[in-house]
Design a protein around this nucleic acid. Structure first.
Lengths: 133, 133
DNA sequence: CAGCATCCCAGGGGATACTG
DNA sequence: CAGTATCCCCTGGGATGCTG
């Protein structure tokens, strides 16, 4: 009985359920905030210096004006970016990331890294398949 | 001339359109692979040592058997995990991550980090609101 | 325990056309 | 240029109940 209690304790220290609950929560929160196909690519585009609607759109393959418009609005509401209209020419709008938005930098970087490695792997696999076939 | 070449080189490194196209692609690829609410939490759970269906389910708040079942199947097809059935008792199934799956580790870590900071920030903001109100 | 079957729905997302 | 407005579809996802 004592033995079993000890074993249980050790296991808890090795992988504390509390910590894990907290971490799953954190993970799910993040997924909730940046979920969907477009938010991260948009943030990435803004961080790359794109400020104008068209520029952002052109920099993200596949996005439509509708989705871009929607996401920008939502992200502005969530303080992830700032929208500025040039008072002189109302058709001059600029989007810039807030500092808060930059906190996604590391996530984006890791995801880019993964995507590149993934492509590399895919290429290698198909090459190997060709050699074997 | 040499100077200009060097300057150009630097600028290219800083924001090479080619690189950016490649990076957006990589980013979108990654989002495609791990998109949705559940894949990353599942991977996380497996990496935390959960192997049984019920355990995985219990470790992920909100997931239903239906979704878990579906995602596990899909991820098995995509070589992200291995499913093992104990021949002695067919109701003993174990899921384990492949090494490939572990390559998501850094992404998950970054996302957990972000989620924790996010909660902290939310708490601070609401606290400040209380003080001001 | 490990899951499949069924029913159901919101909303994410696409295509296209139009406006100030 | 910077969006809105429609229309429409699909599917991710929820709820619930059932089986080997």
């Amino acid at each position: 009985m004592k033995e079993q209690l000890r074993a249980k304790k050790v296991k808890e220290v090795l992988s504390n359920p509390r910590n894990q609950k907290e971490e799953v929560q954190a993970l799910q929160d993040t997924i909730y905030v940046i979920g969907g196909k477009w938010k991260l690519p948009i943030i990435n585009s803004l961080c790359n210096g794109n400020k104008r609607f068209r520029d952002i759109q052109r920099s993200i393959p596949g996005i439509t004006t509708r989705m871009l418009s929607r996401e920008l609005k939502e992200m502005e509401a969530n303080q992830l970016l700032k929208r500025t209209v040039d008072p002189d020419s109302p058709v001059m709008v600029e989007y810039t990331v807030t500092s808060y938005c930059k906190s996604f930098g590391d996530i984006i970087l890791e995801m880019i890294k993964w995507g590149k490695q993934h492509r590399k792997k895919i290429r290698e696999v198909s090459k190997a398949a060709n050699n074997n076939g």
